[in-house]
């Protein structure tokens, strides 16, 4: 990861210097080393703050909606660093005509999995001051106020990386990666199957308990590349939905279920919703349930695998499956 990181940063500087791009969308460390947040760099000088390490999990695709249009207006181009999983979101946004492709230079960056600082803390580390990747590529040395320790990377991956979709980039103008694509990691539908196996009452109780933690901070919505409406129905007084959610005694349920419906078939399973949720709600399970159902009803479909796809839920064809298929497959 270290080697890729150096090359990525160097190449970003080069592209900025030679004028290929006038902006770079990447990550910038915050107050703490693990607080890597999306940032748009506008000068070569500012690029000294560009980082690409094990804590750059944020998906930058969504930022291209505004930045690609803005870059075009300025007569320039924006460079975006996309990890393999991020490219699905980028493609999906291209499919939805949201990104001005001609104004974006996609630098595909190799990724070996992002780490979750909370999972590192769960391993018993306190007062963490820094993390270094060891030469074996499999472990991290964790520096703390009380001395150093070691942790296996596999044990501290963020949720979305635990179920990595693969190391292949779906779209790029240039690629910097040492990864070999080993295909998907783990069974991403295992959690969905567990929920499916529950009785409706237990399942309801599970979601009631999870969703009641929601504080409606809208982080999931803000991070989600599929939640990219110019004006969200929840912010639209005229839609009649906003006030409805408030009158319901269990408003978060309404919000998250409607959100899941709105992104169904368009969600690329980038996992940002769960990653950014400050309350730790496993929101990705909603989306994966839809993805699993779509795969089962219509055949394997990966939203964003290529630009210009016609997703099965929003594609009218004369050969469409009849609604009876639901009951034929044991649903109700």
């Amino acid at each position: 990861m270290q080697r890729v990181s150096e090359r990525v940063i160097a190449r970003a500087r080069e592209l900025m210097r030679e004028g290929t791009v006038n902006k770079v969308a990447g990550w910038k460390a915050g107050e703490f080393f693990y607080d890597c947040a999306p940032y748009v760099f506008e000068s070569e000088e500012s690029l000294k703050d560009l980082v690409y390490d094990r804590f750059c999990a944020a998906n930058l695709s969504k930022y291209m909606i505004k930045n690609s249009v803005a870059a075009g207006a300025e007569g320039g181009k924006v460079l975006v660093l996309l990890k393999p999983c991020d490219t699905y979101s980028f493609n999906q946004l291209l499919t939805e005509h949201r990104i001005a492709r001609e104004n974006v230079y996609v630098l595909g960056v190799g990724c070996e999995g992002m780490c979750d600082i909370d999972r590192i803390r769960e391993k018993g580390f306190k007062g963490i001051t820094g993390v270094d990747e060891n030469a074996d590529g499999k472990t991290l040395t964790v520096h703390t106020l009380y001395g150093d320790g070691e942790v296996a990377i596999d044990d501290v991956l963020v949720n979305k990386c635990e179920f990595c979709k693969g190391k292949a980039h779906m779209i790029f103008d240039e690629l910097i990666s040492d990864n070999e694509d080993e295909g998907p990691r783990g069974d991403r539908f295992a959690g969905v199957r567990e929920l499916e196996a529950m009785s409706p009452a237990d399942r309801f109780a599970f979601w009631q308990s999870e969703l009641s933690k929601c504080i409606r901070c809208n982080a999931c919505r803000n991070a989600c590349p599929a939640c990219s409406c110019r004006k969200c129905v929840f912010d639209n007084d005229a839609s009649g939905i906003a006030s409805k959610a408030n009158t319901d005694s269990f408003e978060e349920k309404m919000f998250h279920i409607i959100r899941a419906f709105h992104v169904a078939g368009r969600c690329t399973d980038c996992g940002e919703c769960t990653r950014v949720c400050p309350q730790g709600i496993p929101l990705h399970l909603f989306n994966r349930k839809y993805i699993k159902d779509i795969n089962e009803f219509y055949g394997e479909y990966a939203a964003g695998a290529e630009a210009g796809q016609r997703g099965p839920l929003i594609n009218y064809t004369v050969d469409d499956i009849e609604p009876a298929a639901v009951s034929d497959k044991g649903g109700n």
Binding site: T95, E96, H97, R98, S228, C229, R230, K231, N236, R266, I314
Partner: peptide, 8 residues
């Protein structure tokens, strides 16, 4: 004003 132009 609300249309995303997404082609859905």
């Amino acid at each position: 004003l609300l249309c995303n132009g997404c082609s859905c």
